[in-house]
Nucleic acid binder design. Structure first.
Length: 532
RNA sequence: GCUGGGUUCGUAUAACGGUUAGUACUCGAGAUUCUCAAUCUCGCAAUAGGAGUUCGAUUCUCCUACCCAGUACCA
């Protein structure tokens, strides 16, 4: 019997969503869409101490930027759903709002002998820990130590009842079975076996804030929400046996979800997993969107750095997964049919900023000139230039255009002109923000000249030839120089220097076509005056 | 330390016992050209080490090394 595919992304709102988290969400999303199932977002905010304002919204905004929308848990306007409805039958989707649900499940485990009440205070446990560590060992609350600690297993029933009544700092702990092999299957890693003696008695529920810990909340909610596959980060693999045992203790083994543990994203250099600091150090974002923490500290984001969401999603998808052939350009929609869990790589993926840029370059080229112009225009306006939609509107404003649609004196340009510029330069750029550096000379004449290039090309004989060519050549500059048998490179580069201020840029003919005869002559004149 | 997971060019990865170990990014060289970029062509570069199984191991088993995670009343 095939059961409906239902997966969930369950972040904890303790800060901005890191790109590794986005990847986990992405894989969940792709899996759900491919199977025609549901992608649920659930907020795991059971740790009241680590809550960070704005983090929840950030997570949803980040996913939304990537094009990842939840079928369930978050509504159209990006709010986590609190009230059940046809579309969101399992609301609320924020665990803090599900508080009343968990206690009875925890109690149920105590009644069935799978859990017990523990009265050890944080201080007592810290003391135990310190004492054991002093002896060179690690303290574990488990089958070996629990009989020497204060809990419902060691205390008399009436004492337990009294403490339960009087105290508000007790917990419910899972009673880890002794010397049992837990046999598990992971969709990515295969069969894994662990002996329960290596595991501890995890806290499942805390009386202090009447909230479950991750382990309990997770199992209960996945069960209640009928989750079919749990696709999550590798950091959860060590607690998988506990989760198996919990399903068993509840008697939910038959409907237990299948698990897939994803490898982690590693630092581009050196060792360890990718962290916020790496981004700062190596100059790339670690977060999808810009984030300002409560202390006012700013972390850059892919979006603000100029990455297209398509590029970001594409590069993320390929960190630890591949379609099995040589194709590597896939949009979110294109990923859906080809994605598969069994092509996920087991080992950790080291993030490569170079490849990230390459992806953006590729998507930039795929964009239409019109769309790119639309993104470029605000930058031009910031530089004090004006872009008008049509020449006629400009005409009525008293501006007239020569040549291709640029009025250099008044710094007014038609949108069409910007589009043509973009068409010529987009292959040279990685980000829209590069456009200005690459092509500012197609909007304003050079004020300064790169001295290195001046030294190289602004030689007396070059200037003389250039001058003569500009004055006499007419429209066929290249033909004129060739007829004269002058060194093409020297003359052209000298001229380029005059027109662009440096020795890089489009072909001279293209530049002249863009800026028009008048501006062309004006720039040559200016350069001669300035450099001679 | 213990438990679990992992290990193919610098990086991401392909090769589900038989390949000259493929591809992309990066890097290098050449071509092109009026420069730069782009483009095209070529190139550099890897199975962590050791045993075993096998006619044959990147692939299966074991050991070692290294890396990662977990070891919280955090998720």
């Amino acid at each position: 019997m095939e059961r409906r595919t239902r997966v969930r992304f369950a972040p904890s709102p303790t800060g901005p969503l890191h790109m590794g988290g986005v990847r986990t969400a992405l894989y969940n999303y792709l899996y759900a869409k491919q199977k025609g199932g549901d992608f649920i977002i659930r907020i795991e905010d059971t740790d009241s101490h680590r809550f960070v304002p704005g983090a929840e919204k950030y997570i949803i905004d980040a996913l939304s930027w990537c094009g990842i929308k939840a079928d369930e848990g978050v509504d159209e306007s990006g709010n986590v759903v609190s009230v059940p409805s046809e579309r969101h039958p399992h609301a609320p989707y924020r665990q803090s709002e599900r508080k009343p649900i968990y206690r009875k499940y925890a109690e149920q485990l105590v009644e069935s002998g799978n859990a017990y009440y523990a009265f050890d205070t944080a201080e007592e446990l810290a003391e135990c820990r310190a004492k054991t560590e002093a002896a060179g060992q690690t303290f574990i609350y488990n089958q070996k130590t629990r009989m020497g600690l204060r809990n419902s297993l060691t205390l008399a029933p009436e004492e337990t009842a009294r403490l339960l009544e009087e105290r508000t700092d007790w917990t419910i702990r899972f009673k880890m079975p002794e010397d049992k092999i837990v046999a598990m299957d992971d969709l990515i890693r295969g069969h894994i076996e662990v002996n329960t003696d290596t595991l501890d008695d995890k806290v499942l529920w805390k009386r202090a804030d009447e909230l479950p810990t991750y382990h309990l909340a997770n199992i209960v909610d996945d069960h209640l929400m009928e989750v079919s596959e749990v696709i999550r980060g590798e950091e959860w693999l060590p607690s998988l046996p506990l989760h198996y045992l919990l399903y068993k203790a509840f008697g939910w083994t038959d409907s237990q979800p299948r698990f897939a543990h994803l490898s982690l994203l590693l630092k581009p250099d050196g060792k360890g997993k990718l962290s916020k600091r790496d981004g700062d150090k190596l100059g790339f974002p670690v977060f999808p969107l810009r984030w300002v923490n409560p202390e006012g500290e700013v972390s850059r984001g892919y979006r603000e750095d100029g990455y297209f969401p398509e590029a970001f999603v594409n590069l993320l998808a390929f960190l630890g997964w591949n379609p099995g052939d040589d194709r590597e350009m896939f949009t979110l929609e294109e990923l859906v049919p080809v994605f598969s869990l069994d092509r996920i790589v087991k080992s950790g993926a080291r993030f490569n900023p170079e490849k990230a840029r390459w992806y953006n370059r590729e998507y930039l080229r795929l964009k239409s000139d019109s769309e790119l112009a639309g993104l470029f225009i605000p930058i031009l306006e910031e530089k004090g230039l004006k872009v008008v939609d049509c020449p006629v509107c400009a005409l009525s404003a008293g501006v007239s255009f020569a040549g291709e649609g640029a009025d250099f004196a008044n710094k007014v340009y038609t949108r069409e002109y910007v589009e043509k510029v973009v068409a010529h330069i987009k292959e040279r750029a990685t980000f829209v923000a590069d456009f200005w550096d690459i092509a500012s000379y197609l909007f304003v004449g050079p004020q300064e000249f790169v001295s290195k290039d001046v030294d190289k090309f602004w030689k007396e004989e070059n200037v003389a030839m250039m001058k003569e060519a500009v004055e006499n050549a007419g429209s066929d500059l290249e033909g004129y120089i060739r007829d004269k048998e002058w060194p093409m490179g020297k003359v052209m580069n000298c001229l380029r220097l005059a027109l662009t201020g440096s020795s890089s840029g489009l072909g001279i003919a293209d530049i002249i076509r863009f800026i028009g005869k008048d501006e062309y002559h004006a720039r040559v004149e200016y350069a001669i005056k300035k450099l001679s």
